[in-house]
Simulated assay, not measured.
Amino acid sequence: MFQTRHDGNQGSYLIGLKDPELALAVEVCLKYLVVAFTCDNYEDEKVLKSLMVKMYPAGKRPTIITSQFLQHVHDTRKRGVNHPQYPSVLQSLEIEDPVVANCLIDQRNIESILLIKNRAEARRVMQGKNPPANCIQAFSVDGDQIYTNRNYSSDQTRPNYLSGDVEEEIR
């Protein structure tokens, strides 16, 4: 995940995993956001787009998300899932910058997605009589996506970006 700063310089910010075993689940959950760029305003977005046109072939350009940069992480305590056994995606990540955290919260609701390593347990938790409050879905260690009424298996079999140092992987 990258961002442009007010001074026009690009900065990269590491998204670290507290539990490396969850790399595939988190990467499948975040999808394109793992390599997205954020801009504070539309002027910066125009500059970044013009640079991307020169550097990336058509159809291969990373996503640009434009949203005002805040210096504090959104307060998700009232709307996030809080499970005694399983972490949310937000709880499972170490994010160095509030802008990156807020982008993932805004774009993917990572505070409301559980990570449950075992696929059968994830189905039991999500599709039982009382699914967790504020939980919109869960991901298993295999990248399977489980909702209260359906589930999807992942085609991806290994993490491409979150298997180690994200900055090194992106290079």
Rank of each mutant, 00 (worst) to 15 (best):
I65L: 07
D44E: 10
Q10H: 10
Y147H: 11
K18P: 01
S88P: 03
L51I: 07
V100F: 01
G59P: 01
V47L: 14
L115A: 09
I95L: 14
D142R: 08
L114A: 08
L162A: 15
E169P: 02
G8S: 12
C29T: 03
G80L: 05
L22S: 11
I110K: 07
V34A: 08
A133H: 08
A120F: 03
V100T: 02
I116W: 00
E43Y: 09
A133D: 11
I110E: 01
N9W: 12
Y32L: 13
N102E: 02
S163R: 08
P159Y: 01
K49Y: 10
Q91T: 12
N102W: 04
I146N: 00
L114E: 05
R150H: 14
Q137N: 02
R79L: 04
N134P: 00
E167P: 04
S154K: 09
C103H: 06
L24M: 07
R5S: 05
V35K: 14
H74D: 11
Q68C: 07
Q127F: 12
P57R: 13
C103F: 05
M1S: 07
R171H: 04
D97G: 07
D165W: 13
V166W: 09
P20T: 05
A138F: 00
L162Y: 10
H74W: 04
K54I: 09
T157A: 06
S112C: 09
A101Y: 00
M126G: 02
R171E: 07
L93K: 08
D97C: 06
K31Q: 13
M1Q: 04
H74L: 06
V89W: 01
R79Q: 13
Y161M: 12
K117L: 04
M1H: 09
G164K: 01
L22H: 14
I116C: 03
S88D: 10
I113E: 00
Q156Y: 06
Q85Y: 10
A120T: 12
Y161Q: 14
I136S: 07
G80V: 05
S67A: 13
D142Y: 07
C135P: 00
G164Q: 05
P87K: 08
G164P: 04
I116T: 01
A101I: 05
Y152H: 10
M1P: 04
I110F: 04
I64N: 07
P20A: 00
E169W: 14
K18C: 01
A120H: 06
I146C: 01
K49I: 14
P159D: 02
F37S: 02
T4L: 13
N130E: 09
I113G: 02
Y152Q: 07
V100E: 03
V125I: 15
I64Q: 09
V53I: 12
Y152C: 09
E168V: 15
T63S: 15
Q68M: 04
S112Y: 06
R108Y: 02
D40C: 08
Q10F: 15
L90D: 08
N151T: 02
T66Q: 04
N82Q: 13
A23V: 03
V34F: 03
P57K: 14
S50E: 15
E21F: 01
S153N: 09
N151H: 15
F37R: 06
V81A: 15
V47S: 10
F69R: 04
V89S: 13
H72C: 14
R77Q: 11
S140M: 05
V125A: 02
